[in-house]
């Protein structure tokens, strides 16, 4: 996508960034709609997962992994701003691998939650919200991986790193959504 070549010189915010914002807006409406559906269904029949320490252990570990991963992604942007190619590569790689660990943790959680998708309406809500979030994490991993490939090709410099920035923003977004889902599904 050669968006930069058609951007009006006077435009202050980059075209890619506006496109990402609008995409994240429409994604947010999607997650909010799912959460509203969850709230509406919960209103009709009260269900929740047991709030025991062991029950919350895996999701808590997963939350930590994703949070550390987000910090790694953030340090990738700091590295590229200083033209630190090794730092950029390592940060992207770490963020990406932790993302994959998170997805593996989610798969483990799916198998040990004691729920299935046809377990009343709650099973459906749980797997839909978690499943779509996991798909977004995988999309973020692909985004980071593409940036890693371009880093290896030497595409990014301290003045030219928009794709890194956008990928990291997407990663922050995925992390933020996770916190909302964690609170909604495990803590309420």
């Amino acid at each position: 996508m050669t968006s930069s070549s058609v951007t009006h010189p006077a435009a202050r915010v980059s075209t890619g960034r506006i496109a990402l914002w609008i995409t994240l807006t429409t994604e947010s409406v999607f997650f909010v709609t799912l959460l509203v559906a969850y709230a509406a269904l919960r209103d009709e029949a009260d269900w929740s997962l047991p709030h025991t320490f062991t029950r919350l252990l895996i999701p808590a570990v997963n939350t930590t992994i994703l949070l550390v991963s987000a910090f790694m992604a953030g340090s990738a942007v700091r590295a590229v701003r200083h033209n630190d190619q090794t730092g950029l590569r390592n940060s992207l790689l770490r963020a990406l691998l932790l993302g994959l660990v998170f997805v593996a943790g989610q798969v483990f959680e799916f198998n040990h939650a004691g729920l299935s998708i046809d377990d009343q309406a709650f099973g459906g809500v749980f797997f839909t919200l978690m499943g779509f979030h996991a798909v977004h994490v995988l999309a973020g991993v692909v985004f980071l991986a593409l940036n890693l490939m371009r880093t290896n090709l030497g595409d990014f410099t301290s003045t030219h790193y928009e794709a890194v920035d956008l990928g990291v923003w997407f990663w922050y977004y995925v992390t933020l959504v996770w916190f909302v889902l964690f609170a909604a599904l495990y803590l309420l």
Binding site: I117, Q120, A121, F122, G123, G124
Partner: peptide
């Protein structure tokens, strides 16, 4: 429509009132 698809294909109960859906 995704919820409908899950109801139809994976046996979820989003729109099935008998199973806590709406």
């Amino acid at each position: 429509i995704l919820l409908l698809l899950l109801d139809r294909q994976l046996g979820a109960h989003f729109y099935n009132t008998a199973q806590g859906g709406s």
